[in-house]
Design a protein around this nucleic acid. Structure first.
Lengths: 226, 226
DNA sequence: AACGAATGTGTATTTGGTACACTAAGCTGT
DNA sequence: ACAGCTTAGTGTACCAAATACACATTCGTT
C-alpha cells in the first residue's frame, strides 16, 4: 500500500470535493440520482455523485466530470448550491464539499453503472434511503432552493424537453410545489410572462385531443422574473 | 526561511480561504469594508477581509475570526454567499474561497487597523478602489444577493440599531434599492407584516417632531416572508 | 410668534391573483 | 358510425394587494 505523500504544504490543507444533487421528475415524483458506495466509509450506503477536485480544475467542471464519470449523465443544467464544511462531516480527513444541484428531463437520462461498478439509482425525494455523510442535508437544501426558485426563475423548463405541452409544464410545477394548480390560471400566468411560444406542432400522444406544444423563447436566460 | 512542508497528502490539495463582504450604510451610501494589502501578491491593492481556514475550523467560524482579527468587527449578521474557485484566481497556489456577506449598523463599527498594521477603510459601493484577486466580482454578487433578499426576508433590520424609526428603515430600503419609496405605502406595508412593534420611546434628534421608535419582534427570524 | 424640518395619517384607483365549468378533438371499442 | 372516455382549451366575476397622492402635527430655532 503506497503512502508516498508527495504533495506537501507549510500548513494543513483540507480536501475539496464537489457533490451534485441531480433532480428529475420520474413517475410523477421529484427524484434524485444516488450512488451506492462501494468503499468505506459509509460502505453500502447511498450517496450523491461527486468526488475530489483536481488541482487545476474549475469547481463546476469538477461537478460535471464526476457526474459524467459516475453516472454517465451530461448536458444538464447545473448551479452552485452551498458549501458544506463541518470539520467532522467526513471521518477520514477534513473535506470541504462545494455542492451543486442539477436538473434534467428524465428521458435524457440513462444512468450507467459507474466505472467502479457501483450501483446508481433514482429515488423519490420522499423515499430516500439512508444517506452517507451529510448528504441528506444537502438534498433537503437543494430541494428548498429549487422550489423557491420556481417562483422567480424559469428553471422549471430545465426539467422538460425542448418542446412541451402546457399540461406537462403545469405538472412540473404541481409536483415541485406539491399542490394542485388551476389550469386556466396557470396558462394565463405563464403565457403572460412571455417566456414561451407555440411551436406550431402538436403532441399526439394518448387517446385524446392533441395538445399544442411550446418552446422556450430564450433558453439561456434563467434568472429573475420582473 | 523555513520551508518545512510538514503537511503532506497523496493528492494535491487546494488551499481554502473565507472572505467576507461586510456591508453597512454610511453617509447615505451602501459601503463595504476593505483592507489594504501589505504583502504581495496585489500589494497595495484593496481586498476583502478574509484568510485561510484552520484545519479544524468551521467555515463560518473562520469568516468570523478573520473579520475580528483583521478589522475588530464582531457580532454582525453573517451568511454564506458563494464559493469561488477559478484555478487562476490566486497566482500563488490553488485557492478556493468560500465567501460570506455580513451586515452591520455603522455605529457599531469601529474598524481598527489589523495586527499586521494594514489599513482598513469603508468604501461606497459605487466608488470602490482597484480590488485584489476576484474580489470585485465577489462584492457585486454580494450586493445583488443582498438587494434581492430585501424583498422576501427581514435582513434590512440587521443594518439598524435595536431601536429605530420608520424613516430610518425606509432609508435603508431606499439606499439598497436605489429608488425613492412612498412614505405612507412603506409604513402601511411594513407594519402589516408584523415584524416590528413600537417601543413606546421617541427619537428626539433634530429640530423637528420626535419619531416613534420600533424594534423587531423576533430578531432571530430572518428568512422568508409569507 | 413665525419658520423650518421631519413625523404621521386615509382614501380612491389600479393591478394582479383567485375561483370557477363547459366545449373541443382525438382515440377506442362496439 | 357513434357512444364513451380522456385530455386540451377557453373567459369572467370577484377579491386582495399595490399604488398614487396631500396635508396637519410637533418639535426646535430665531
Amino acid at each position: 500500500m503506497p503512502t508516498t505523500h508527495r504533495h506537501c504544504y507549510d500548513y494543513p490543507h483540507p480536501a475539496v470535493t464537489t457533490d451534485v444533487v441531480l433532480f428529475t421528475i420520474r413517475l410523477d415524483a421529484l427524484s434524485v440520482l444516488l450512488i451506492q458506495r462501494g468503499n468505506p466509509p459509509c460502505q453500502g450506503m447511498w450517496a450523491l455523485p461527486g468526488g475530489f477536485l483536481n488541482i487545476d480544475e474549475d469547481l463546476e467542471a469538477c461537478a460535471k466530470r464526476e457526474l459524467l464519470e459516475e453516472t454517465g449523465v451530461e448536458g444538464v443544467y447545473l448551479e452552485q448550491l452551498y458549501t458544506f464544511g463541518d470539520p467532522k462531516r467526513d471521518p477520514r480527513e477534513r473535506v470541504i464539499s462545494v455542492t451543486f444541484y442539477a436538473l434534467s428531463q428524465s428521458d435524457h437520462l440513462t444512468p450507467k453503472a459507474s466505472s467502479d461498478a457501483a450501483l446508481t439509482a433514482w429515488f423519490a425525494i420522499n423515499q430516500l434511503p439512508e444517506l452517507a455523510f451529510d448528504h441528506a442535508d444537502i438534498i433537503q437544501l437543494a430541494r428548498k432552493r429549487l422550489v423557491s426558485k420556481l417562483g422567480y426563475t424559469t428553471i422549471a423548463f430545465k426539467m422538460l424537453p425542448k418542446s412541451f405541452t402546457l399540461s406537462q409544464l403545469q405538472s412540473v410545477y404541481e409536483i415541485l410545489l406539491n399542490e394542485d394548480l388551476d389550469k386556466r390560471n396557470f396558462r394565463k400566468g405563464i403565457l403572460a410572462r412571455n417566456f414561451i411560444k407555440e411551436t406550431g406542432e402538436y403532441s399526439r400522444i394518448g387517446n385524446h385531443r392533441p395538445a399544442k406544444t411550446y418552446r422556450v423563447i430564450n433558453p439561456s436566460q434563467v434568472e429573475i422574473i420582473k
